[in-house]
Simulated assay, not measured.
Amino acid sequence: MEFPVDVALAELVPQLPTGPRWWYEVKLDGHRTIMWRTAETVRLQARSGRDVTPWWMDLAVAGMELPPGVVLDGEAVVVVGGKVSFGAAQSRASSSVPRARELAARYPALLIVWDLLALPTGDVRARPYEERRALMLDVLAGLPSPSPIQAVSATDDVEVAQAWYENLADAGIEGVVAKLGSSPYRAGRSSSWRKVRHAETTDSEVVGFTGTAARPRALAVRLPGGRTALSQRLGARLAMQLAEHLVRAAPAGPGRTDAGEPFTVVDPGLTVEVLAGTTRHAVVTVTRLR
């Protein structure tokens, strides 16, 4: 395996699947993070493939306890007041590195792990989910206790999963992910991984912006069906968070949406959530940076 790795993604569905060999995991509201324990150090990768180690250095230090060669997939989360806070995780990820370290001292992160991609003996992505999970639990059992690197809660009982979905939203549980026990770890979206979320949103790739990189007015996003559209005008807080990323990316020139609106093309490797109902419209509503 070479850094960065393409991550597996779940298909958004309206209800949990049932049947033999379906497993269910709580879906936490944080930042997707791949942890690479190399021979000498630890690297952390965002969903986009970007190296985000400096922003999550507390997790990188904890990862040094893993055997070299281990690669884990999970969610970096921050707990504030007993609740998983996406805002706290987002503040960490979108701040400067010195500020991120200040935030880490006040609110240490957890890496909630749900998959194992590699062992010291090699790549295990082709193995079934049930086997990878058992191997993952063995790896995590070898960490000192307590550790900020922890296994996600999982069950093969759909009634338990439904109870999680219905009762844990106030604790920062975003939804539930269902995975076939026989499924390999496959890059991209697959129907063998499905998610049910409380928010009616979908993920979209940022392909450009209007305004300036330091003060973006709107985003150009590529929707799941392939259409490119502009967002509504960004709120001040969201615009500031996005600017942190856009100013580091070199604009690639002019572009136009499917409806012909001009924008500045950029490839920062960003993903945002948009309201699902607005994806049918000429202008979509962005809710947050992923």
Rank of each mutant, 00 (worst) to 15 (best):
T278S: 15
R21P: 04
A169T: 14
S95D: 06
P98I: 14
A88I: 07
Q232M: 09
S94T: 15
G122F: 06
P4W: 02
A243H: 02
M64H: 13
L230E: 00
Q15L: 14
F263P: 02
A178Q: 07
V274T: 09
A199C: 06
A46G: 12
E200P: 03
P224Q: 09
G63A: 10
I149W: 04
R127C: 05
R125V: 10
A250E: 14
M35S: 04
H245G: 02
A229Q: 01
A163H: 15
L9D: 10
P17K: 07
H31I: 14
F263E: 01
H198V: 06
I112A: 14
L223F: 08
R125I: 11
W23K: 10
G225E: 11
L44Q: 03
A104Y: 01
A154H: 12
R222C: 06
G82M: 02
V78D: 00
E75V: 11
L234G: 01
A161Y: 12
T155Q: 11
T278Q: 03
L9N: 07
A60S: 06
E40G: 09
P68M: 11
R125Y: 05
W23A: 11
R186I: 13
T212I: 04
G253E: 11
V79K: 07
L9R: 13
T257N: 04
D51W: 02
Q90F: 08
A259S: 14
G49Y: 07
R189F: 11
F209N: 02
D58R: 00
S96Y: 09
I173C: 12
R106L: 14
I173L: 15
A141I: 08
E200T: 11
T278P: 00
R227L: 12
F3A: 09
R92N: 03
L223T: 05
V160A: 13
L135M: 14
I112S: 09
P120A: 08
T33R: 05
P268E: 04
